[in-house]
């Protein structure tokens, strides 16, 4: 079993797991508890650690494969720790045609990250998606809930810069 990683903010996850157990137990008797419990887990840890998956399966008495199936079905849930900012590059057809791949390459270079990875300072996670449903603005990247439209590779530096700037204020903050 993968060892649960220690959180950089010093908030130890042992405590969090205990809190999670309470949350799961409070949902136990309710039908359809799985998704709300996973949401709670995601916001508690910022991702869904393996130990939590085992706990959820055990306490809710749901097959592991069902829990894992739901987690991997919804992109909202993440199995790896995520950075403060989740950057998602649309690789849908419209965006692709408009040069999304070049934008992605620029992001990879500037962040030194591959798809799915998180920067060591836990600031950025790089990911891709398929059609965000706003093809008229292609190519698109999303940083958390912010939409950046008609992005060119040369815009990347500036976009990243605005988020890095906020870092000073929020550094180390864990929701």
């Amino acid at each position: 079993m993968a060892k649960v990683q220690k959180c950089s903010c010093g908030n130890d996850e042992e405590g969090l797991i205990e809190r999670l157990e309470e949350i799961i137990t409070s949902f136990k008797e309710k039908p359809g508890a799985l998704i709300p419990v996973l949401q709670a887990t995601q916001s508690l840890f910022g991702y869904i650690p393996q130990e939590a998956i085992l706990k959820i399966s055990e306490i809710l008495n749901e097959p592991l494969s069902k829990v894992y199936g739901v987690i991997t079905f919804y992109s909202f849930f993440s199995l790896k720790p995520r950075g403060k900012y989740l950057i998602r590059v649309c690789l849908g057809t419209a965006c692709y045609v408009q040069g999304a791949n070049e934008v992605l390459t620029a992001l990879k270079q500037q962040l030194s990250l591959e798809i799915g990875e998180t920067s060591p300072d836990k600031l950025f996670t790089l990911d891709v998606g398929r059609c965000f449903g706003a093809c008229g603005l292609a190519p698109i990247i999303m940083v958390n809930d912010d939409v950046h439209q008609w992005v060119k590779p040369s815009d990347v530096k500036k976009i990243l810069g605005t988020y890095k700037k906020q870092k000073g204020v929020n550094q180390g903050e864990v929701k």
Partner: peptide, 8 residues
């Protein structure tokens, strides 16, 4: 209750 579908 072993097998399931994962990912999408």
């Amino acid at each position: 209750e072993v097998l399931g579908f994962g990912f999408r």
